[in-house]
Design a protein around this nucleic acid. Structure first.
Length: 547
RNA sequence: GGCCCUGUGGUCAAGCGGUUAAGACGGAGCCCUCUCAAGGCUCAAUCCCGGGUUCGAUUCCCGGCAGGGUCACCA
């Protein structure tokens, strides 16, 4: 059979460049040893999720801690899954979490020497290599219809054989020259398949950067490399693109592990050195009593918008992910509480081999300690940003009173105290902490633990003596002074040694005041709250709190 | 079902043949204290099971079991 003629018939020459020319156009990047080139290669299906962020973070960290390059490639080979604006959305989402690309699709960079970065625009490159394989007899056209393939698969399943297009099932492998040309002439649609040289009797061991040595059987499937629309499949595009974009380390989900033999064979047949691979275990979630992969449909927490809407501090999400990605990161954080996570030495081989359960409680903890490191101004800006986008009209009106709000915030986050408070976990919950400072959101629950006479007496007496000018100790002295008048102990020690002699203690006096002022038995420093509220509002609330 | 990956407290996990089996989140308690938060201290809780190898296995080997992944002209 004249392969050259066949290759020409299948892939008309047009203006294809030769494989050698592509090697020249995309020369190896001139980088020192140890420097890694990584990439994020999403399909433009719309939104990017937590799993993408997780893997993007690993890619970005590896590239940037080694002084390498992190680029964005768009895998748009599946027309059906394309969504408009998806690429911008990917870039925007990652940027929100502080992750930037050095190169790639829609990235403005002088480094963009390895494009185009959209696979649909790389058709000629792929075809040049498909043609080469055709000429070498390492690929062939297949005219089987979907129905035929389904039927074969059904019978294979029934007889418990391995499914797929291989060996004796690879019908079109043996088509005569005449049959092929007849089919082409008849206008039958066709795909190009790899003529696999592998055998399942051969084992190959390769080293995964995360999982270590993995032994797999060679690929013997005549996989499709070029679809009937002339666009390559993922497998083929991966081999070509990661070779010519000179990726050194491919980090991807472990769901790809099983197609690794295909990729290895493709690289071999194409004459490429395969990149290093790191297969990451995916984020899991507890469903009933079994673990399962986080799912786009069922789990809202997979969407990155979920975190924006809930008002998580973006860096907290990143740091949480870092703790999952590299277990020694947390230890490092403890030693370097104020350190930038980018100074941490990220190691790909420190990544967990098994899928981690996504732990929302831990995220919450990371988030509140992250927020507790912010200055009052930074925290204010963060909360205001959230309110502007997701807050109610009432929230927005509160945020117009900058000075007042900043005072409250200083109290809530505990600036000035020995240690910062960690009350704000995320913006959505944090802004609610301001509610009792504004009359329109003050929603008290007057559940006093004492009788009416006692409560009202405490409230009246304190309203009569309160003065905004009091400092903390003067204020507390006044609270103490009321205690004996209502039969309470003014010293805690007194109360503790003889509780039977008293109806309550100073702390109970404070509780009554606190409920009247804030509407709840718990709050930060009451004295400061009253001062922020001001005398008239304080007194009004004390009197309003009477029952 | 075939093939591949994984298996240390409730969760994330250190560990690489001999350890009182780290640490963090969560839980319980105590201290501090005008309450809460924060902080400090303390406690409870783990090596999937069975065989080997070895003086000795959480660690190495084999076999189970369990969980996950994958078997497309989707990526």
């Amino acid at each position: 059979m004249n392969m050259k003629k066949l290759a020409n018939a299948l892939i008309p020459d047009g203006d294809l460049l030769s494989p050698e020319e592509y090697e020249e156009i995309y020369p190896p990047r001139n980088l020192p040893k140890g420097v890694e080139v990584t990439r994020l290669a999403p399909s433009p299906t719309g939104f990017i999720h937590l799993g993408n962020l997780y893997s993007a973070l690993a890619d970005e960290r590896v590239a940037h801690t080694t002084g390498g390059v992190f680029y964005l490639r768009i895998e748009d080979t599946d027309e059906k899954r394309k969504v408009d604006g998806a690429v911008e959305s990917v870039i925007r989402s990652l940027k929100y979490f502080g992750i930037r690309f050095d190169e790639g699709a829609e990235i403005n960079s002088s480094l963009n020497n390895y494009g185009p970065y959209y696979q649909r625009q790389r058709e000629k490159i792929y075809k040049s290599f498909v043609k080469k394989l055709l000429e070498e007899g390492l690929a062939y056209p297949c005219f089987c219809t979907a129905e035929e393939l389904d039927a074969v698969r059904a019978s294979q399943t029934k007889s418990k054989e391995t499914t797929g297009y291989y060996g004796k099932y690879a019908k079109c492998r043996n088509l005569t020259e005449e049959e092929i040309y007849d089919n082409i002439k008849a206008g039958k649609p066709y795909v190009i398949r790899l003529k696999s040289q592998g055998s399942i009797d051969n084992k190959i061991t390769f080293r995964d950067a995360i999982k270590g040595d993995i032994t797999v059987t060679e690929n013997d499937q005549d996989v499709v490399i070029l679809k009937s629309d002339g666009i390559p499949t993922y497998h083929f595009a991966h081999a070509i693109d990661d070779h010519f974009m000179r990726t050194t380390l491919v980090i991807r989900g472990e769901e790809w592990l099983s197609s690794l033999p295909i990729h290895l064979e493709l690289h071999k047949v194409l004459g490429f050195n395969p990149p290093k691979y790191a297969h990451t275990s995916s984020l899991m979630k507890m469903d009933g009593d079994t673990k399962r992969k986080l799912s786009k449909r069922k789990d809202p927490e997979l969407s990155l918008d979920y975190y924006r809407q809930a008002g998580y501090y973006p860096q907290a999400v990143v740091k949480y992910l870092m703790t999952v990605l590299n277990s020694n990161f947390e230890e490092w954080t403890l030693k370097n509480p104020d350190g930038d996570y980018k100074d941490f030495k990220f190691k790909i081989d420190k990544m967990g081999k098994s899928g981690a359960l996504f732990d929302l409680e831990k995220l919450n903890d990371v988030s509140k300690t992250e927020i507790s490191k912010l200055s009052a101004e930074e925290c204010y800006a963060f909360l205001k940003g959230w309110v502007d986008e997701f807050g109610s009209e009432v929230d927005k009106s509160h945020f117009k009173e900058d000075g007042y709000l900043l005072k409250i915030l200083t109290l809530i986050i505990g600036i000035g105290g020995k240690k910062r408070r960690k009350d704000i976990e995320r913006a959505e919950q944090g802004v609610r902490l301001f509610d009792y400072f504004f009359d329109d959101t003050f929603d008290p629950d007057y559940s006093y633990r004492f009788d009416k006479a006692t409560v009202n007496m405490v409230l009246d007496k304190f309203a009569a003596v309160y003065d905004t000018g009091d400092d903390n100790s003067e204020w507390f002295a006044k609270v103490k002074a009321i205690a004996p008048e209502v039969g309470f102990a003014s010293e805690m020690s007194e109360y503790k040694s003889h509780p039977e002699n008293f109806k309550g203690s100073v702390s109970d006096v404070a509780e009554i005041l606190r409920i009247a002022i804030t509407g709840s038995p718990n709050s930060p420093d009451l004295c400061t709250i009253m001062r922020i509220l001001g005398k008239s509002r304080t007194v009004a609330r004390l009197l309003k709190g009477k029952i």
